[in-house]
Computed example of a mutant assay.
Amino acid sequence: MKRITIISPCYNEANNVRSCYEAIRDLFAGPLAGYEREHIFADNSSTDNTVDILREIAKDDPCVKIIVNARNVGPLRSTFNALKASSGDATVVMMAVDLQDPPELIVEFVKRWEEGHKVVQGVRTQRDEGTVMSTTRWLYYRAVKRLANIDIPTDVGEFQLIDRQVSDAVTGFDDHNPYIRGLIAYTGFRPYSIPYVWRARRRGVSKNRLLALIDIGLNGMLGFTKAPIRILTATGLLLAAASVIYAIANLIFLVVHGTSSIQSGIPTLIVALFFFSGIQLFFLGILGEYIAAIHQQVRFGSKVIESERINFPPEPSKPKAG
């Protein structure tokens, strides 16, 4: 019997984890009854009773496995770590416990996987959210696709089913801040796309605050494109060329008319100083993002510290050195 793994990262989701568990359990008791279920909950060091609820579920259901992180490492790193623990023939990379991604779509995912597609992805063609956030996401996805050096599909998140071959390739990357949808695209397997509506949350509030979303967005932008660095280089060259042209034009005007084309003054100097200082700080900020990413990767790699695993088979003991 083939095994399908479902990964659900969670943080302070006491109101949602049981509903998510029951939705997946019912799928495998119904239309997916011919498959073995493995549901991995990756808890990001919740401070409410999320883990207690998961313990109760796992106590009665050996198909439920739990990874409890020692600290909150963010949803993508937590999901990536759980992906390494997946034992399924195919894996749904992220089934959000708030059920904004419809779990019933997994049935179609599995059907297309059985037809031979290594990657089956959900495409969010419509979002039940505010206009500002929806528009921002729309623009971001298209900017990444335009600038990236690989083909990253638009309107696609981590709600994807990937074959074992793909998951092995993705987890082979040692990435401190994995942009998982980008890594899946990087493997090169042609995806099968299924459109759906991204639902509004029914209970609780999203733990992905604005700063976290910005961090994920920058990670995706910097990880798969050289465009920011090249824009800095082009801007620097344009400013240098403009300065040279201005100097030559001013010199010609001075020779012809005996005076400078623009009278010098303190306000002009102040404006120029602040403008170019702002440009330099902006450039340094972008360079700093790259340096920080390199620094984190060199120091920490992709390792996530776990405090506990539940319902996983015991790891074989390592032989003692002697």
Rank of each mutant, 00 (worst) to 15 (best):
N208M: 14
T268G: 15
S167W: 06
D52V: 09
N15K: 15
R77T: 05
R25T: 00
I294A: 15
G130S: 05
E115G: 01
Q280F: 15
R164V: 05
D174Y: 08
F275N: 08
G157W: 01
V92N: 03
Y186Q: 14
L284T: 10
I184S: 02
A200E: 10
H295V: 14
I6K: 00
I229G: 12
F173N: 06
R112K: 14
L251Q: 07
L54W: 03
N208P: 09
N12P: 03
N219G: 07
I66V: 12
L237G: 05
F283L: 06
N219T: 07
T233R: 12
A70I: 04
G30T: 03
L222Q: 02
I279V: 15
A321F: 14
M221F: 08
M1I: 09
E289M: 15
Y196K: 00
I245Y: 08
A272W: 11
A321N: 13
L222E: 02
H257L: 10
Q280P: 11
V304E: 01
M95A: 08
E315Q: 13
I184C: 02
A85T: 07
F283R: 06
K207G: 12
T235G: 12
I214N: 08
L237I: 07
L83E: 00
M94R: 14
R203W: 13
N219Y: 04
G285M: 09
L54F: 04
Y35M: 00
E13N: 01
L139R: 09
R112Y: 10
G74S: 02
L161Y: 02
S87C: 14
T225E: 00
T171V: 03
P313K: 08
K111C: 00
G122Y: 01
S8I: 04
P195C: 07
S19K: 15
